[in-house]
């Protein structure tokens, strides 16, 4: 029971990170029907941006408690802005011209972008692991039984709270604002939306920006949680987040969050109870199984095949 509760906390934390990345996949797939393969690497770039900002602030002002908090906050904000810029540029340069082109072209372009980003970071920042000094290590012990203490760390609380708050804001934007309406209109029928005066190109750009900003939140949280980042960190979390998006039903926002939580929980429980070596195999197997037996996902709409 103690182990279970502890893993539940860890799983939800990890799931929050996956869920944030998954939203980027699901929104882009919903609006232009492509798998933005580079999204995982955008997430990795965001973690690096956060790392650099964090280092800059702590080098200038030291490593005391208040400074660390300020540094993380600043890292989060700067990372969201810069990552959004990356995503905007990627869409503008690599995807926009291919919209409506031959179906494989955007996917290949996205894979190329993913390789480009990964190797750009490797060349620009070096291939070694980048550890930050451990921050927010304190934990709160929830209860203790049989000598096993179930604890939740401040980091985990921060990740959960930030995720919940941002998801709330995001949910409000998509459901209640004119921008969100335009997005949903473009998702249903871009041509009709354009005829009704909705700037489709700009709406799609904003979708990419929003997805990237949430990925940047995930990237900053990832950096804080694990305390280390390396240039190849985009691929596996990217694929897992995509799995989460598919599991929840691609195109559905609550689905992406739900899928992210499920994937996070499955991964942590699998590592705890079965085998830590095969945790990625578990995630990939779920992806395959869901796509084969339940391609519409948990909360998605079934796809109707038209002649």
């Amino acid at each position: 029971m103690e182990v279970f509760t502890q893993q539940l906390i860890n799983g939800v934390t990890l799931g929050a990170v996956y869920g944030l990345i998954a939203i980027g996949y699901t929104m882009v797939f919903g609006i232009i029907g492509m798998v933005n393969f580079a999204h995982g690497d955008v997430f990795m770039v965001s973690a690096f941006v956060a790392l650099i900002v964090f280092l800059a602030v702590t080098t200038l002002a030291g490593l005391s408690g208040g400074v660390v908090f300020l540094a993380l906050l600043l890292a989060l904000i700067v990372s969201m802005i810069i990552t959004a810029l990356y995503s905007w540029t990627i869409e503008r340069v690599a995807y926009r011209k291919l919209r409506g082109s031959f179906r494989l072209a955007p996917l290949i372009s996205a894979i190329g972008m993913s390789i480009l980003l990964m190797n750009f970071v490797q060349v620009a920042q070096g291939a070694r692991n980048k550890p930050i000094p451990p921050v927010m290590r304190d934990t709160i012990t929830l209860f203790e039984r049989n000598g096993f203490a179930v604890a939740i760390s401040y980091k985990q609380i921060m990740i959960m709270v930030v995720t919940a708050v941002l998801l709330g804001i995001f949910w409000y934007v998509v459901q209640k604002t004119p921008l969100g309406r335009a997005q949903r209109a473009c998702e249903q029928d871009p041509k009709m939306a354009a005829l009704l005066g909705i700037p489709v190109d700009r709406t799609i750009s904003i979708t990419f920006i929003m997805g990237a900003a949430l990925a940047a939140v995930a990237g900053t949280m990832f950096l804080t949680y694990y305390g280390v980042v390396v240039f190849s960190d985009g691929f596996t979390p990217g694929v897992k987040a995509f799995t989460a998006a598919v599991l929840g039903g691609i195109g559905s926002l609550p689905g992406a969050v739900l899928g992210g939580l499920l994937i996070g929980l499955i991964e942590t429980f699998w590592s705890a109870y079965f085998s830590i070596d095969y945790k990625d195999v578990a995630a990939f197997s779920i992806l395959a199984i869901v796509l084969i037996f339940m391609p519409q996902g948990l909360l998605g709409k079934p796809e109707v095949e038209k002649v």
């Binding site: 690599a94 190329g112 480009l116 980003l117 190797n119």
Partner: peptide
């Protein structure tokens, strides 16, 4: 720069001749 250029080539080729 091998893979960097490789990735860039993939994107550029798609833009040029999808």
């Amino acid at each position: 720069y091998r893979m960097l250029i490789f990735g860039a080539c993939m994107v550029l080729m798609m833009l040029w001749k999808p």
